[in-house]
Structure formats: C-alpha cells, structure tokens
Amino acid sequence: MTISPPLDAAAPSPESHEAAHANYSLTGFIIFLCSESVIFLAFFSGYAVLKLSALQWLPPGVEGLEWRTPLLYTVVLVSSSGTVALAEHFLSKGQIWGFRAFWLLSMAMGAVFLYGQAIEWRSLDFGITSGSFGSCFYLLTGFHGLHVLSGILLMALMLQRSFRPANYAAGEQGVIATSLFWHFVDVIWVLLFLLLYAWS
C-alpha cells in the first residue's frame, strides 16, 4: 500500500472488514437455506397432491420402488452428517489433519450416495415422461442429487482452503456454512426417502 497515512487512517482496515463480512456471510447463508427449503417444500407438496389425487399412480408395468438398496445408501448419506460433525470437532480442537481426514471421508460418502443414485436410475424401467409418478421421482431425486453434488464441491473448496496458511486461525465461517448445508441436504433426503420409498 502506498497511500499516505492520514488518508489511510480513516479507512477501516481490510482485515477487520473481511472478518465482519464473513460473519454476515453465515447469517446470509442461514437465511438462504431457509428460503431454499421452501423449494423442496413446494416439490414435496406437489408430489403429495398428485399422488393423493391420482387415479392410476404407478405407470403400467411398474410394481413400485425397490427400497432395500436405497436404504443402504441412505444410511451412508445420513452417517456422513456424523463424520462432518466429527471433522468440525477436530477443527475446533485445532487438529487440522483430523479435520481434513473426516472432511474427505464425508465427501467420499456423498460420492458413494450419488453413485448409488446413478446405478438406481439406470436400473429403473420407467422414465421422466412416464406419467406424474416418473416426473416426480426424477425431479425430486435429481434436484436433491444436484444439492449433494453442490455440497461435495463446497466441501472440496473448504478442503483446498484449509491448505492456505493461517486460514483457520480465527475460525472458519465457510466450514460452518458448508456443514450446515450438508446437514440440510441429509434431512431433505430422509424426508424424500420417506415420501418416495416408504409411502407406497
């Protein structure tokens, strides 16, 4: 900086500014998550209305959804919430490698879930145009899958940031925001599993 001191003195230091803004980021992110949940609420209620009022819900030749394998992947996804919490725990104790390990594990579990989803989509004998049932199934699982993917990308970003020197000295809002997002995605999946697979 080559600014003369008197002019610079009036300016708030960039560091304090950034810290303050990061604080707002978490507030803003929580507000955004609340708003985002309404989209899922809209999809859920649309699904419920269509299903309850349908004369013939399942497309011809489709018996119903196989729920055992998806349940297995559900367990993987839901337990990744636990590993994320563990990662945060390590971060709060300052053990950065513990954080990185469990953070990476959570990302892997998310990826396994997405893999399971892809396998299931390929094995199904109905498509997105197979009546309201097919439309709802692919929209709901696809939209949620996009969120899982975004979560994994966000976590990768945070992991990469953790290698920047002294990044976690004053606590990292991004990690808190990402883990909140991940818990959110998990809770949505549990509701989705109940609606799509358990309610038949």
């Binding site: 269509l50 997105i128 439309s135």
Partner: peptide, 18 residues
C-alpha cells in the same frame, strides 16, 4: 418448464398431472 420442454406430466392432465 419440464412439462413444456421435456414432456413430463406435472400439470398435463393426459399424463395424470393437475
């Protein structure tokens, strides 16, 4: 948009939509 472009049946009565 999905109904219009992809041909889903959220709102199309002929596919069970409302």
């Amino acid at each position: 948009l999905f109904d219009l472009v992809v041909g889903t049946s959220f709102y199309r009565p002929e596919g069970g939509g409302d």
